[in-house]
Design a binder for these strands. Structure first.
Length: 559
RNA sequence: UGGGGGAUCGUCUAGGGGCAAGACAACAGAUUUUGGAUCUGUGAACCCAGGUUCGAUUCCUGGUCCCCCAGCCA
């Protein structure tokens, strides 16, 4: 990766470079990706992963840790840590031996809390949650000091120890920083540092009855790991004074620098964990790996190459303004990657039977098909051709519009890699539906035979009936029809695209697809990129459409 | 009407007192045995108002609009 692809100098990279030049952190560059193991990763996380691991990779000696911010046992689970690791690896990043957990630091974090109490910079508050909220004041009014704020250091020490020991109920006490109840920054109005949680933790079990909050655990975890630049999203901007306060008051050696950037938003989708969960629970999608979701599991199942996701993340850049990136940009990088790498194959999604009336009955011949015109190294393959074929229904029109370069009565097309055929007749059923067409072929026009002067406007794909494999193909479209599903504060569900998935049964694909394994990617010529779905079996191959090919005909036809 | 951020083509991102750049998207053409790919070209932007200046998108002042914060979530 990152072989000199255009040096993007976003403001964070500029700061990191300046810090290194100024000799801060002894010239070290050490970042971290700090997910909370309470959900699955999505493409917004991919931006952060690429940023953090990318920066570490670009500066010599740079390192990036994977750190689970597991300070809230009520919401977290090992299931998530495993899937997060899998997703980060899939994206192509390696934390080597540096996978850490905030829970690894609980004992030391406790020590820092005790230090703050001894310095009279923290106290045990016994107000209820509602009372604390009331005492906090509002955005425009200062808060009031808790009556417990002046507890003696000894009493605080004792109470805090008893909180740890499990002597109290959830909610009975919390440890608070003693800062300034009148601060215009609400985060500085004596923020909570520790709360009682009588819930087993997925890593520390029942060792602890108290758990540190993000605001306390995060800066100290960064410091403990020697993180130089702690990159997070914009909503933490006004936590930065608190981040710095914690590190200052705890008198740590390494004072990490927090820098905030805008999170990634994409059109035609939603990104929040809550909404993704709702989509699943309400069965609008099948699960976290539904190919229509922006989760990394979903993108993977959809067939998006990790390289394309990385390229996308590099190209959207890093800045501080809120933005919504067009999903078309992501699709562009997917096509770019797949165009270069995917093997071409012919597949007929909506089959229409074609009989080549002048082709000898029972005869079969192989035609040579190029596997990837972008990469001759991928070679070619033999494709069987016979008297009866399938072509795409939409490649035949009884009444062709202008500039329709496909099959119509009396019109000619080339069958890709094979012969030029001419449509002689369309056979209909009682309803008047075309069920089969009869064509004649010109034996002089076999592909590669070089027939000067014999040009046709269109080339269509086909599959030989006796050799075809049957398959199911799932066509995906944007999950939401509106680019912004939450426009005007409406319920995003009202913008769901009812046609975001179409399942096509009875598709006919080239025999070369026999044995294709889950995850394998192909281009179905003239149609798009497809990958073998995880539900695929040897008996029934299932393909997912990753992304359609650009289609200038459909644009033309709309005019 | 407290505090913290932000405003550049349709979208994303650069630039920084002197021709506003790139990518995606759009459009037009060339080419093509994928209406794919490729190539060429075109159109498209500095939130507003004052000020400083020979010159302001950039600097200053004042506005406007947008986002975030009142969890014992992160």
């Amino acid at each position: 990766m990152s072989n000199s692809q255009q040096v993007s100098t976003d403001f964070i990279r500029v700061i990191v470079a300046q810090d290194r030049e100024a000799g801060k952190f002894d010239g070290a560059v050490h970042t971290r990706f700090p997910p909370e193991p309470n959900g699955y990763l999505h493409i917004g996380h991919a931006k952060s992963i690429c940023l953090n691991f990318g920066i570490a990779h670009e500066f010599s000696g740079g390192l990036c840790n994977l750190r689970f911010d597991d300070t809230n046992p009520a919401k977290e689970d090992v299931e998530y840590v495993e899937s997060i690791q899998e997703d980060v690896r899939w994206l192509g990043f390696d934390w080597q031996d540096r996978c850490f957990f905030a829970s690894d630091y609980f004992e030391r974090l406790y020590g820092y809390a005790v230090l703050l109490i001894r310095k009279e910079k923290a106290y045990v508050d016994s107000l209820t949650a509602e009372e604390i909220r009331y005492y906090r004041g509002t955005l425009t009014e200062p808060g009031k000091e808790s009556p417990y704020r002046m507890r003696s250091m000894e009493e605080n020490l004792d109470l805090f120890a008893r909180m740890r020991a499990g002597d109290c109920e959830e909610g009975a006490h919390v440890l608070r920083a003693k800062i300034d109840m009148a601060s215009p920054n609400i985060n500085m109005r004596d923020p909570t540092l520790y709360r009682v949680r009588r819930v087993p933790h997925h890593r520390t079990g029942t060792d602890w009855n108290i758990y540190p909050t993000y605001d306390f655990a995060h800066p100290l975890s960064d410091s403990l790991e020697g993180i130089t630049h702690s990159l997070c999203t914009l909503e933490f901007e006004d936590h930065r004074p608190l981040y710095d306060w914690v590190l200052d008051e705890c008198e740590v050696i390494c004072h990490s620098r927090q820098i905030e950037f805008a999170r990634l938003n994409l059109t035609h989708t939603v990104m929040s964990k809550r909404k993704l969960l709702e989509l699943i629970e309400e069965s609008h999608v099948s699960g976290w790996d539904d190919p229509r979701l922006p989760t990394l599991m979903g993108l993977r199942r959809r067939g998006y190459p990790p390289e394309a996701v990385r390229r996308f993340c590099e190209h959207v850049g890093v800045a501080k303004r809120d933005s919504v990136v067009e999903v078309g940009l992501l699709e562009h990088f997917v096509r770019e990657n797949l165009n270069a790498n995917a093997q071409r194959v012919m597949a007929v999604l909506r089959p229409l039977r074609v009989v080549i009336t002048n082709y000898p009955e029972g005869q079969v011949e192989d035609v040579q098909a190029v596997n990837n015109p972008e990469d001759p190294g991928m070679g070619s393959r033999a494709v069987p051709f016979s008297r009866v074929l399938y072509i795409e229904r939409e490649d035949f029109r009884e009444d062709p519009p202008k500039k329709y370069f496909r099959l119509a009565p009396g019109q000619e097309v080339r069958l890709r890699y094979a012969y030029i055929i001419r449509c002689e007749d369309a056979i209909k059923d009682e309803q008047g539906e075309v069920v089969e067409i009869h064509c004649t072929y010109d034996p002089e026009t076999k592909s590669g035979s070089g027939q000067p002067g014999r040009k046709v406007k269109g080339t269509i794909h086909w599959v030989s009936e006796p050799h075809a494999l049957e398959a199911e193909v799932r066509l995906f479209d944007h999950l939401f029809s509106d680019p912004n599903p939450e426009k005007d504060g409406r319920d995003y569900r009202t913008a769901l695209n009812p046609n975001s998935m179409k399942r096509l049964q009875g598709c006919r694909v080239e025999p070369a697809l026999q044995g294709a394994v889950a995850g394998q990617r192909f281009q179905f010529e003239r149609q798009g990129y497809f990958c073998v779905d995880s539900e695929s079996t040897a008996q029934r191959i299932v393909f997912n459409r990753t992304v359609a090919l650009r289609d200038s005909w459909s644009k033309l036809e709309k005019k």
